[in-house]
Computed example of a mutant assay.
Amino acid sequence: MVPRRSWVEQVMGLPISVLARGDGAESEVAEAAVRGVYAELVEVDRVFSPYKADSAVSLLARGEVGWDGVDPVVREVAERCVAARELTGGLFDAQVPGGTWDPSGLVKGWSVERAGARLREVDDVDWCLNAGGDVLVVCPSKEPFTVGIQDPRDTGRVLASVSRTGGAVATSGTAARGAHLYDPRSGGAVESRWASVSVTGPSLEYADVLATAAFVAEDDWPEVLTALRGYEGLGILADGKLFATPGWGGG
């Protein structure tokens, strides 16, 4: 039986789990890589959380610091948010109603993708990193992991699944937090007949951005995914019916 080991910690206000599979899963090298992942994500949360009073995002929102007074990584993320807005035709925007800047919709995917570089350095281990339903897969063995897609109507049930030997799966919708997404074009909450949109692709950063933008786009969501090559989607309607783009399931 192939050795496996798992970890889970609460970071960014959500459970982040890591599953290791392979001969080196129980090694000190694997342990060090995972601890490095968690340490990096804790630091990202310290800098970018809008819920921490001393984060860069909160200081910027209160006007206590300007863009020239924040760490370069904050300016890098701001540039990535601008690029994401341009990529999605304004469907993704870190400028939220009220005029404040909240990069949360990009930061989770970006930070997990970046932290995942530590896992890629461990050659004899397959990895599945799950950050609150957004998943990064690294499989040197080329043996896939099966990633479940949650039923938005029943969070304890898996409605679909997709096999991946690498890359990412990201989901945006109303299951976890209700109608929390807004349409940057109108400034109002998104009210859609779609309960969720899941996106697969090479990068978790872009899969996450495209999933958010696709959900905002409502019935036009499949068109959003054509902005980048290699990204496919699965939409779940409020009644539980599924609709997949042609390349969904390729992993």
Rank of each mutant, 00 (worst) to 15 (best):
K241R: 15
W101K: 03
L87E: 07
L60F: 08
L225R: 02
P15L: 11
W248S: 01
T165M: 08
A78F: 03
N130K: 07
V44F: 03
D68R: 14
E223K: 14
D123G: 11
V137C: 04
G233S: 10
D151G: 03
V82D: 12
E43C: 07
Y38A: 03
W7Q: 02
W101N: 00
D123P: 11
L204M: 08
M12E: 10
A115P: 06
R157A: 15
W67C: 04
P50S: 05
A20T: 09
V42R: 15
L59I: 11
C128I: 02
V135P: 03
D126C: 10
L181N: 02
T88K: 00
E232S: 12
F145P: 05
G89Q: 06
V135C: 05
G167D: 03
A211M: 10
L181Y: 04
A168L: 02
L60G: 01
E86C: 08
A131V: 08
S161G: 14
L91H: 00
V74P: 02
G235W: 01
Y38R: 08
R120P: 03
A168N: 07
V158Q: 12
P152F: 04
S17V: 09
V8S: 14
V34P: 01
D239Y: 05
E26T: 14
G109W: 01
N130Y: 06
A189M: 14
W7F: 13
F48Y: 09
H180G: 10
P202F: 05
T245A: 09
V162K: 01
K108Q: 12
A207V: 09
L242V: 11
V18D: 00
R35E: 15
A189S: 15
L159D: 07
V216M: 11
D151A: 07
E40P: 03
P246Q: 08
G166M: 10
E205T: 13
T165E: 11
L234S: 02
E31A: 13
D123L: 15
E31N: 11
D54I: 05
E28I: 11
L91M: 10
H180M: 13
W101Y: 09
L19M: 13
K108S: 08
E9L: 07
G247A: 13
G156Y: 12
G22F: 04
M12P: 00
V74F: 03
P72F: 00
S203R: 12
R80C: 04
A53Y: 04
D219R: 14
P144Y: 08
P97G: 09
A30D: 01
P140Q: 13
T226N: 11
V162G: 05
V8H: 07
P140E: 12
G109N: 06
A168T: 11
L204Q: 02
A25H: 00
V122D: 04
W7P: 05
V47N: 03
V2A: 12
A175E: 03
G24P: 10
V107T: 06
C139D: 02
A25K: 05
T200E: 09
A25E: 07
R85H: 06
A20H: 04
A32I: 09
